[in-house]
């Protein structure tokens, strides 16, 4: 019995070793089979070709992406500069179009109710101020725009001047922004508008240079009914 017991142990050991060897061999064989070294030449060539194709496709993809990226980048820089240019234009046109209140140095011309002022005199004054370099003008808080109208009307009691259809009240204060000295001289020189007003019409306005003149925005902009922008501009 002791002898046959020894056999059992030996046999078990042999089987364990054998099993170990088997599994090791199986693993090794798997490794070797998937390793490139173990491949046949034709298979290697196939792998190479596949890889090469994939590589080429990726390179193409990369080139396409690169081109798209560069284009987007240029476009985005263009947009940034376009936004800046447009913003500059908008800010400049806002100042002159009358859509925003403006401030700056300039002059005020004040005409009191006792002066025999005619509506044509006001048209002359506005025209003279533009000619002298005014950058913005208002008459009694009416901003002068392309559409400002100055007219005369009368009711049962009196004759009066209207601006944009509103009755003009005295004192009439005309404000202009621009170089104060130039604006004043442009009105008051001998033979100039104010000189003629004083000597011929007995209108004696007060012209004052101002460090700051505030001019309001236009109250409304007429909507175009008849005018159109031609399509091919």
């Amino acid at each position: 019995m002791t002898r046959s017991k020894g056999w059992y142990i030996s046999l078990t050991l042999v089987f364990v070793v054998l099993g170990f060897l088997l599994s090791t061999q199986f693993q090794t064989q798997q490794k070797i089979l998937t390793a490139l070294d173990a491949q046949k030449k034709e298979d290697l060539i196939t792998v190479w070709k596949n890889l090469d194709d994939k590589n080429r496709a990726l390179q193409q993809e990369m080139e396409d992406l690169d081109a798209a990226y560069r284009q987007l980048l240029a476009q985005s820089q263009e947009e940034t500069s376009a936004v800046k240019t447009i913003s500059d234009d908008i800010n400049r046109l806002k100042l002159v179009s009358g859509v925003t209140p403006v401030t700056g140095p300039g002059i005020t011309v004040t005409i009191t109710g006792d002066a025999p002022l005619m509506f044509l005199d006001l048209i002359d004054l506005v025209n003279e101020l533009w000619a002298t370099g005014a950058e913005a003008i208002s008459i009694n808080e009416h901003r002068i725009t392309e559409h400002t109208t100055i007219a005369e009307e009368s009711d049962a009691f009196s004759y009066y001047i209207t601006i944009n259809g509103d009755k003009l009240l005295y004192p009439v204060v005309v404000k202009a922004i621009g170089d104060p000295h130039t604006l004043e001289k442009g009105l008051t020189f001998t033979g100039g508008l104010i000189d003629i007003w004083k000597t011929q019409f007995n209108i004696h306005p007060e012209v004052l240079q101002r460090e700051t003149v505030n001019i309001p925005a236009a109250r409304y902009f007429p909507i175009w009914v008849h005018a159109q922008i031609p399509a091919a501009q």
């Binding site: 447009i86 234009d89 179009s97 009358g98 175009w224 005018a227 159109q228 922008i229 501009q233």
Partner: peptide
């Protein structure tokens, strides 16, 4: 970033309106 810059179109239409108001477009009618 470009989506955020949708402002460009808004700015362009504002500029167009201002150009109209300031005589900077040809007009017919």
């Amino acid at each position: 970033q470009q989506v955020e810059k949708g402002t460009l179109a808004t700015l362009q239409s504002e500029l167009e309106w201002l150009r109209r108001r300031t005589g900077l477009t040809q007009v017919t009618g």
